[in-house]
Structure formats: structure tokens, C-alpha cells
Design a protein around this nucleic acid. Structure first.
Lengths: 200, 200
DNA sequence: GTCTATAAGCAGATAGAC
DNA sequence: GTCTATCTGCTTATAGAC
């Protein structure tokens, strides 16, 4: 690891280990090794494992959610939004394949973690998209669909194939490389599927 | 807990705890308490925590996957299959909301668990559905779609809303009861969405 | 700030009585 | 088969030297 500040090294190492092993599976010793420092130093910067985890987890939420929501807020046409979204999701998740299960599992363990950060409230804003869905439906360009069903459908189709990768590969008999290509192809396949479903 | 055989009590208790806490988060003491027996007895029936977990996990796979695949194998029309599938997924997952994240997380930890049970190989068979997709496309009833994209799309839309429930509730500002209703409505909304996407 | 050494408690596993 | 008691090693956390 390059010469970063110690605190930064700790956060990076902790993130790597926590994402791979989860809160309960991670060991402080492992994190210390990954950071190239001593175990005691972890406790010097973050009093406990719990606090270290919380710092890491909140940082992840703050880094990810705004990125994904920024597209919804833009003034792009609906179809363009969907294509951009698919592109960004696939690119991001190909680089961080363990992220979805990590985040979702830890939220199942303690959903309150979503409410500890006031910053998130500002980021989460779907008004623009909501208006867009209504106005496009009024114009007859798409079938009416609620913002809730819309969001759940698009996010599910983008994220779940990464979370359930081992299951899908087994069930569909797909090798690693072919599955990566399949995910890549979903950058265009999902938007096409989605637009087709929305046709009036 | 009623008077079942000890071994059965252990399996049930272990399943409850493992599903809630995961392999690494669960404690043998907790499982013993849940089963109303002593910790030593767990080791008498299953030598180690690892073996107990494996027994529980394999049993879960064997119980779930055949149930979900049986629909695909039937000779029902495509549209009926999709509606039946949505109904069964929602009903099952409303009763076992923690199942998806548990299974997927443990498979991420050790994907080999999917290959330890030969029984599963017989169950997993999509030939019938595959033929159906091809023949319906040839008849012009649906747009062509690969079995892989079809499966990933339908399963993602069914399962992910349960796995990501805390996230969706927060982002969409939905209370518990309303979210349960929303999931219920997906028994028909998802099939409608899906059939619309498949129209040629 | 960073280390070594060690405390204190916990978890998995076993021995042995009944 | 089931229990109590105990061992052993691991894990978090702290004390204290540098």
C-alpha cells in the first residue's frame, strides 16, 4: 500500500475486509494486516470494531447513493436516463461486485444505519423522475407506471444479477467469462426490455 | 417449542438463527437456547458448527429450488407460467423475507455449496422453458429473448424487492404496511410489465 | 503516533458423570 | 442421550514503553 495517511490506510483496508467478510466475519487482525499496521492502532483511531465499521459503512452509503441518484435528477429524456443508468450500474458493479450483498446484508442486520446520516436525505430526490413519468404518460408516450414500481423494476434488474451471480451461473450453466459478457450486454438489453414494457 | 425429536429441534433452531445472523454471526449457544437444549448436545449430533451449518444450508437449497423450478418445467402457456411464478414467489418470500439475503450471502462466501448436492442437478432443468421461448418467438407471439436474460429478469424482479426492502422503503419513503401491499400488488404488476416487454 | 505485550472475555469443542 | 464443567484457542480491547 502506498504512503497515505494512517487513518486513510485504515479506512481503505477496513472497507476491503468488511466488504469481503461482513461485519461479523471480519477480524481486526486481518484489517491491521491489510493496512500494514498494528492492531492496536485501529483502536487508537476508532475505539471499537463497531465504530470502525460504522465509519466505513456510512462512507460507502455517502459515496454510492448520490452517484446513482444523480441520473434520476437530470433533465434528460426518460429513455436516455434509462440507458445511462444501465451503463453506470454495470460499470460500477463490475468493479465492485461484492458491494450489493454487503450493503444489503448489513442493512438487514440493522436498518437504522440508513437514517444516521442526514446528508442522504438531500440526495434522495425522485420528484423530477416522478413528474417525468406522469407527463410522459399524459402525452401517451408511455403506459402509466408508479414511481415505486418503476424504481424497483429498474434497480432490481440492474443489481440483482450481481448479487445472485453464483446462483445464476450454476442454474444457467454459465462460465465466469460468459457471465461477465452477459452482464455487459445488459447495458443495452435491459433498457430495450424496459422501454418495450413501457410502450403504451 | 413442541416435543419434536432432538435432532429435528436442532435443525429448526439452527435454521432460524443462521438465517437471521448468518454463519459467522450465529453462536452455538444461541442455537442451543433456541432449541431448548444444551450446547454440548449440538456437538453430539453435528461434530462442528461448520457441519451443522452445512446440513441446514443444503436442506434449505433442496427445499426451495425444486419448488421454484417446478413451474418452469410445466406445460402451461408462457403467460400463465409467469403469473403463477409471481404468485408463488411473493407468497413464499412474504413468509421467509430473510431467506434471499441469507442464501445469496452464504453462496458468495462459498459458491461450492451449490455443487455439493447432486440432487439439485436433476431439479434444475430449463429445457422446456427454452423451447417455449423459441417456439413462441417463431410464431410471432413474443419478441425473441434468450433463456438467460429471461430468467435473470423475472427472478430479479421477484426476489430483489425483498432483499433490498430496507433500502427501497427508505428511498421511496414507504411504511411497512404499504410496502407489504406493494409487494402483493407485484403478483400481477410484474407479469403485466413482463408480458408487455415481450410483445413483438 | 506507533509499537509490544498482555489482559479479559468469548466461542467452539471435549471429557466425563449420570 | 443429555447434562455440567472445563479446556483451548481466538478476538477484542487496553496498558505502557518508545
Amino acid at each position: 500500500m502506498k504512503e497515505l495517511g494512517t487513518e486513510k490506510k485504515i479506512i481503505i483496508a477496513a472497507r476491503n475486509i468488511f466488504i469481503r467478510k461482513g461485519m461479523s466475519g471480519a477480524r481486526m487482525q486481518e484489517i491491521a494486516d491489510e493496512a500494514g499496521i498494528n492492531k492496536a492502532l485501529l483502536h487508537y483511531y476508532y475505539r471499537s470494531k463497531e465504530q470502525l465499521f460504522s465509519a466505513v459503512f456510512q462512507e460507502i452509503l455517502i459515496q454510492i447513493l448520490p452517484q446513482l441518484f444523480s441520473i434520476f435528477k437530470s433533465d434528460l429524456p426518460l429513455e436516455v436516463k434509462i440507458y445511462q443508468l444501465a451503463e453506470r450500474y454495470v460499470d460500477f458493479l463490475q468493479e465492485h461486485p461484492e458491494m450489493p450483498l454487503f450493503v444489503l446484508s448489513e442493512l438487514q442486520r440493522d436498518p437504522q444505519q440508513l437514517f444516521e446520516n442526514l446528508e442522504l436525505s438531500k440526495v434522495i430526490n425522485l420528484d423530477n423522475l416522478k413528474d417525468q413519468l406522469i407527463s410522459e404518460a399524459e402525452k401517451g408516450n408511455i403506459r402509466p407506471i408508479s414511481i415505486e414500481q418503476f424504481m424497483i423494476n429498474i434497480v432490481s434488474m440492474m443489481v440483482f444479477p450481481f448479487a445472485a451471480r453464483p446462483m445464476f451461473q450454476r442454474v444457467l450453466s454459465i462460465e465466469d467469462e460468459a457471465y461477465a459478457e452477459l452482464l455487459e450486454s445488459r447495458k443495452t438489453e435491459v433498457p430495450k426490455f424496459f422501454m418495450s414494457a413501457l410502450r403504451p
